[in-house]
Design a protein around this nucleic acid. Structure first.
Lengths: 150, 150
DNA sequence: GGTTGCCTTCGAGTGCGCTCGAAGTCCTAC
DNA sequence: GTAGGACTTCGAGCGCACTCGAAGGCAACC
């Protein structure tokens, strides 16, 4: 049961930039084999959600003799990657498309790149929206809970 | 029909910071009376959505003799404010709560302020998420449509 | 006076992303 | 050997924020 160590790892890495990269999964001593509960603790996703992601084809997860999921580093890395994209509101359909392209082999790299670049634009747009909204909220706060229509 | 002039106004203000503030509604020559179609053109919301916002109590909109909505400046200002909050993913329930507090009078200013400050924290959190995701996507783009698990 | 077109209400439907519950299996500890 | 708990599959349900369609009203123009 590695969950306790993982909890520590999560605490020490939380808040850093980037807060849980794929590189961390590779470089830090994340175990080669993880249960679904371990991955849930690591990523903050629920086990239900992890099963859902597998069900809709975003990850393939090996099983042990009893049919239980055994997440290897590749699976964990992919889950982490997916959560990063989800954190930026990338639709699951787009992530699924990306994963599909990866499965199809290296010929699809241009389309993958295009997909990522389109998403990059989305992120930049969202950033601008949020900064605008932040300005509005800050204005309201500094001028004291104003009349809402104003 | 003021829609054409509004279109021009929208074009000239689009992309500025902040891109359509409540102040613009007050200061620029936005007409005193607007139809639902005008407000839809101004805000980018659909007429359906505008009716929905009214239905759930986010705005009150005066009517003409025939029962049609006539948006005055206060109503337009509130719709613009709501869209700014929605752009930052503030849940409709929270916006409704805020509007409710405004209705209840000036005694509720502390709670309004608390609500805005909580939302401000949410926005900052979302900004960090997005910046992290942007870093991941940029990394993927610069290292060429990598293997997705990586 | 008909047609066009935007407006009205009301209720139901949609899409997304989970989220849950039931029923059963398997390993571990006592 | 049995109790507990974490796991499995499957399908259904949920919450949010719209989104749509039907059926009808009113005004303006030809």
């Amino acid at each position: 049961m590695t969950t306790d160590r993982l909890r520590g790892l999560i605490e020490t890495t939380a808040g850093e930039l980037p807060p849980l990269t794929v590189e961390l999964v590779r470089d830090l001593e994340i175990p080669e084999q993880m249960t679904i509960a371990d991955v849930a603790a690591l990523t903050g996703l629920s086990a239900h959600t992890l099963r859902y992601y597998e069900r809709i084809g975003l990850v393939e997860v090996p099983r042990d003799g009893a049919g239980r999921r055994v997440y290897d580093r590749e699976a964990v890395g992919r889950v982490v990657f997916i959560t990063r994209l989800r954190d930026s509101d990338m639709p699951i359909a787009a992530i699924a498309r990306y994963v599909e392209l990866v499965k199809q082999g290296p010929d699809t790299e241009p389309e993958r790149l295009a997909l990522l670049e389109a998403h990059r634009e989305d992120i930049l747009h969202r950033l601008r929206d949020l900064q605008g909204a932040l300005a509005v909220v800050d204005y309201k706060i500094t001028t004291y809970g104003g009349s809402c229509g104003s």
